[in-house]
């Protein structure tokens, strides 16, 4: 299991991809790349086209126009070969309740032509070896999701596609799930996660792509997106009671003060101005008790993008 999955070229390469049905367009000139050893988070409203994009990447649906390469191959033509190399966890999946977890996994392993011992190893890895011989009916949501993840990890895939993998899971399970996925990423697998949980993916994705109404409207690292949006950094200063106004005045004129009261000052500034302000705040140690800096959250970045030029 420890062999490296690192490969040359992009894991996913999509150019000018369109998918149209008779009455509407679900994907509109989408261009996107994902690399080996990195996690790409695909975020967007329901119906933004994330699942449609996944289906095309999986070779389940045909693009209307555009160029798609998955692990260097066209998913429409290299189906059998590609399908041994990728793992997929759908958003809604309910395995047959009467079956045991181990049976289900063995069945999928057989389809990928893997030996039985891979199944036991994987069950161990996702923490399911204890429950594997119980009927799926008796599983909790978390156990079902672990089984789903185990299924996606069969055959040590070079590309992992996860559709809303953490919906309905408790925080510990979420962390476990990301730990398992990150271990695969660190071995060189490319990971694509569709999600709505922005605060959860913020620190975990190497790259973020934002979709709105079938269009890809932004792609980049969190820092790159922050810079591109030009959203302000918020600085919160807690002061000695009664000194807040004095602190604010010492920061100079033309400051974008958001809030000044008896004991606190909140101000917004650009990323580039941040250090200057911090220096000036640090120059008043007798008045300042604490400083908190908050860079724009992914949620704000997302709102900034999808809010832009909204309903047509």
């Amino acid at each position: 299991m420890a062999e490296s999955l690192r490969q040359v070229g992009h894991a996913i390469e999509v150019q000018d991809l369109c998918k149209c049905y008779r009455t509407h367009t679900v994907l509109d000139r989408v261009s996107l790349t994902a690399d080996h050893g990195r996690t790409l988070a695909l975020i967007g409203h329901n119906g933004a086209g994330k699942t449609s994009l996944l289906k095309i990447l999986l070779g389940l649906s045909r693009p209307t126009t555009g160029h798609v390469r998955v692990l260097g191959q066209n998913p429409e033509h290299a189906q059998a070969e590609l399908r041994r190399k990728h793992g997929f966890l759908p958003e809604h999946v309910a395995f047959h309740g009467a079956m045991r977890g181990r049976d289900v996994l063995r069945f999928y392993a057989r389809l990928k032509r893997l030996p039985r011992r891979d199944v036991d190893e994987l069950l161990e890895q996702v923490g399911m070896s204890g429950a594997a011989d119980r009927r799926i009916n008796t599983y909790s949501k978390g156990m079902r999701q672990r089984l789903g993840l185990a299924q996606a990890l069969l055959g040590n895939p070079a590309l992992l596609l996860l559709d809303e993998p953490t919906t309905g899971l408790d925080p510990f399970l979420r962390r476990d799930l990301y730990d398992i996925v990150h271990a695969r990423r660190d071995l060189g697998a490319a990971v694509l996660i569709c999600t709505h949980s922005l605060d959860e993916i913020e620190q975990r994705a190497d790259c973020i792509a934002i979709m709105r109404q079938g269009k890809l409207i932004a792609q980049g690292s969190l820092d790159a997106l922050r810079q591109a949006t030009g959203l302000p950094v918020r600085i919160r200063v807690a002061t000695v009671p009664g000194q807040a106004r004095a602190v604010a005045e010492a920061l100079g004129s033309g400051v974008d003060l958001q809030k000044v009261n008896d004991r606190s000052v909140h101000l917004d500034c650009l990323e580039t101005e941040k250090l200057g302000f911090l220096r000036r705040i640090a120059e008043q140690p007798e008045r300042v008790r604490d400083v908190e800096i908050q860079a724009p959250r992914l949620e704000q970045i997302y709102a900034h993008y999808v809010g832009e030029g909204k309903p047509q």
Binding site: L60, R83, P90
Partner: peptide
């Protein structure tokens, strides 16, 4: 309906 068909078809089948 159970969502397993979508999954099944992503396998080499």
């Amino acid at each position: 309906e159970r969502g397993t068909l979508l999954l099944l078809l992503t396998y080499p089948v």
